[in-house]
Design a protein around this nucleic acid. Structure first.
Lengths: 343, 343
DNA sequence: CTGAAAGCGCTTACAG
DNA sequence: CTGAAAGCGCTTACAG
C-alpha cells in the first residue's frame, strides 16, 4: 500500500486542516481543544491512511522519549526474567517502554552501553548491574539521570533501589533450621561486592546472634562466584574445616545446587546428613532432587516497584532517594530436615 | 555540571567551526572529509563538553534508527533468554540495539506492541511469537517491514526464519531409543499451531516410519499446553490408553518434567519403567532427578543468526526469504535406558 | 477553535 | 576542505 508512512501533514492535507490541528487530535490530552466534528473527520482520515506517530520526531520536539533503559548483568540468569517482566508491565501501564541491554561486569562496557541508552534519549535508567561501590551509578547520578537500581543496592545511597529484604530472608532461613533442631549452621556467602551477598551474610550473622547460639558455631565461607561449581568447591572446603556442620544456608540457589554436587561426591545425603537452604527460588528448584528449601524473593514484584519508582523519580526530579525492600518468604521443601540424632 | 546535554552547535561554537563540520567529524564514516587538524580540535572539544549524539534527531534526519524490535512470547520461558542474548550480541557487533517487548498470544496485544515498535522507527522486527498461520506476520510483510521469525516459522513462507531442525532432532531422539532397544515409543506433542509442535510431531512420525516399526506402534498425544501440568495429564492419559509404552519423546522439557510427575503418581520409575526424552535442553535439566535426556537446540546460535538475517534483510530489501535451520544434538542423560526385559 | 511559525538536533546535497 | 541551508516529523506558544 502506502510506500511511505503517512505523516501529520498527509493527514492534514487529506482532511483539509492544518497539521497542528491534526497533532492536537492525535494526542488524547489535547484532543479536547478541537471541535468534536473536526476531530472525528481527522481520526477517520488518520485511520484510513494508517497514520502512526513518528516517535523520533516527538521525542525530539518534547525531549521526552517515554523509554526507560534497563541494564541487566545476564538475562540468562533466571533471577532476571521475572524482574524484567515486572518492569515491562509496570512501564507499559503508563505508556512507557523498556529498552534492555545485557552487559557483563566490565565497567567500560557498562559505560558504553549506558551511553548508547542515553543517546537514545531514555527518560531514565533501571540498573540491575549495580555493585555496592559502583562508579557507574555515581556517574549517572552526577549526570542527573533519573535512576533506580533493582535487586542491588549501591551503598552510598545516592540512588533509589528496590531490593529484597535480605536480612529478613536470612532470618527466615536460620529460624527454619533452628526450629528443625540444627545447632551447627554454616553460611556460604555470595560476593561481598554485591549488596545481595553482603546483606545476606550480615543477615545470617545477625540471625545466629539473635538466636543465642555462640557466634563461633556459625561459620561463613565465601563462594568465589554465584555458580554451581563455586558452590561445590565451597562446601567441600567447608566440610573439611567444619565436619560437624549439619545445615548450610547459601547465598543463592545455584550455589545450593553446587552443594548437592559436593555432598554426592562425599557420599553424604541431603537432608539426612546435611540440610541445605537456598535463596531466590528460581524456576525448577522444586524439581531438583531433593526439592530445594529456599527463600523466595519477589522477583516480579521488584520489577513492578522499580518501574513505579523510576517513573516517580522522573515526575519529580527532586524526589527523595528511596530504599524499597520487599519481604521474601521461606519455601520449605525436601532439602531441610532435622539433624540426625547425635549429630 | 552541564545542565543541558551538549549539542552539535555547542561543540561548533566552542571550536569556532560550522556545526555541519562537527557532524562530519562525529561520524567515523565522514570524518575523512575534514582536515585532521580541525577534526582533532573538534574531537577534543566534544569530549570536553561530553557531547553525545541525540539519536532521536539522527533517526529523524536519516530515517534509520539502528534499532531492531524483538517480540517475545515470554521471557521467563528459559528457551528465550539465550536467544535474546544471541540476538543482542549479533546486533551490537554491527552497531544496532534491540528493543524487547514481551507479549502473550493475544493477537490484538501483539498488533499493539508492534505498532509501538514501528512508531519507535525500528529498522526491522524479530518475532519469536509467530504461529504457523499468523496474521500478524502477514500484516508486517504487507507493510514491508523487514522481518525474521526466530524459533518459530510462519508456514506460508513469506518471512525468513531461523529455527532448529526439528525433524533432525526427533530423528536423534527416536534413534537413541531404538538403539536402547525400545519398540513401544510414544510422542507427547506440543501445540500443532506452532511450528515447533508441528515439525517435531512430523519428525517423530517420519523417524518411526524410517525405522521400519509399524506406525501403529507409535502413538502421538497432544499436550494441551507446554507446561508441566499438561505434560503430566498427557502421560497419565497416554499410559491409560497404551500401557505397554516403554519410552516417551516429548515436545519440550517442561512437558517431560510433567511426565516425571505422572510416573511418580503411578508408582513407576524413570528410566526403569519408562524412558523419557525431552526437547530444548533448557537450564537445570541436568539437575532434575533423573537428569533428563533431551535434544539440545542451539538457542544462542539461533539468536545470532536471527540478528545476522534481519540486518541482511534490511540491507537488501529484496533479499530472498531464507529458511535457516540449525542442527540440534542429543544429550543422553539418566532418563533413558533399555526397556526392562520382557517389557 | 484553528492556523502560522519557530524549534527540537541532527544529516546531507549543494556551493564555493 | 568547510559553510549555509533545507529538511526529517513532530509540539506548542502565540495570534486571531
Amino acid at each position: 500500500m502506502s510506500n511511505k508512512a503517512a505523516t501529520l501533514s498527509d493527514v492534514a492535507r487529506a482532511t483539509g486542516v492544518h497539521l497542528s490541528t491534526v497533532s492536537r487530535v492525535m494526542n488524547p490530552e489535547t484532543r479536547g481543544m478541537v471541535s468534536a466534528e473536526v476531530a472525528k473527520r481527522i481520526l477517520a482520515e488518520a485511520r484510513r491512511l494508517g497514520y502512526r506517530a513518528n516517535r523520533a520526531a516527538s521525542t525530539l520536539a518534547t525531549r521526552k522519549s517515554n523509554i526507560i533503559g534497563v541494564v541487566l548483568p545476564d538475562i540468562t540468569n533466571p533471577v532476571f526474567p521475572p524482574i524484567l517482566t515486572g518492569i515491562e508491565e509496570g512501564l507499559r501501564k503508563h505508556g512507557y517502554q523498556a529498552i534492555v541491554a545485557n552487559v557483563g561486569a566490565d565497567e567500560e562496557e557498562q559505560r558504553f552501553v549506558i551511553n548508547l541508552l542515553l543517546g537514545q534519549q531514555v527518560d531514565g535508567l533501571i540498573l540491575a548491574t549495580a555493585r555496592r561501590d559502583d562508579p557507574v551509578v555515581k556517574m549517572c547520578v552526577e549526570q542527573r539521570v533519573p535512576l533506580v537500581t533493582v535487586n542491588r543496592r549501591e551503598e552510598s545511597g545516592i540512588a533509589s533501589c528496590v531490593i529484597s529484604d535480605d536480612g529478613h530472608g536470612m532470618h527466615l532461613a536460620v529460624r527454619h533450621l533452628l526450629e528443625l533442631g540444627h545447632r551447627n549452621i554454616a553460611h556460604i556467602a555470595g560476593l561481598d561486592s554485591l549488596s545481595t551477598g553482603h546483606f545476606r551474610r550480615r543477615g545470617f550473622l545477625a540471625a545466629i546472634e539473635a538466636s543465642g547460639l555462640e557466634a563461633g558455631a556459625a561459620r561463613v565461607f565465601e563462594a568465589s562466584g554465584h555458580t554451581r561449581e563455586c558452590g561445590k568447591a565451597a562446601l567441600l572446603e567447608l566440610l573439611r574445616q567444619a565436619p560437624g556442620t549439619t545445615a548450610v544456608v547459601t547465598g543463592n540457589d545455584l550455589v545450593a545446587i553446587g552443594c548437592y554436587d559436593a555432598l554426592a561426591q562425599l557420599g553424604l545425603r541431603c537432608p539426612q546428613d546435611v540440610s541445605i537452604v537456598g535463596h531466590n527460588d528460581v524456576p525448577f528448584m522444586d524439581m531438583v532432587r531433593p526439592p530445594l528449601t529456599t527463600v523466595r524473593i519477589r522477583h516480579h514484584g521488584m520489577g513492578v516497584e522499580a518501574a513505579r519508582l523510576i517513573l516517580q523519580t522522573i515526575e519529580a526530579r527532586d524526589a527523595p532517594v528511596l530504599d524499597i525492600r520487599l519481604k521474601p518468604e521461606l519455601v520449605a521443601r525436601g532439602s531441610s530436615a532435622p539433624p540426625r540424632a547425635g549429630a
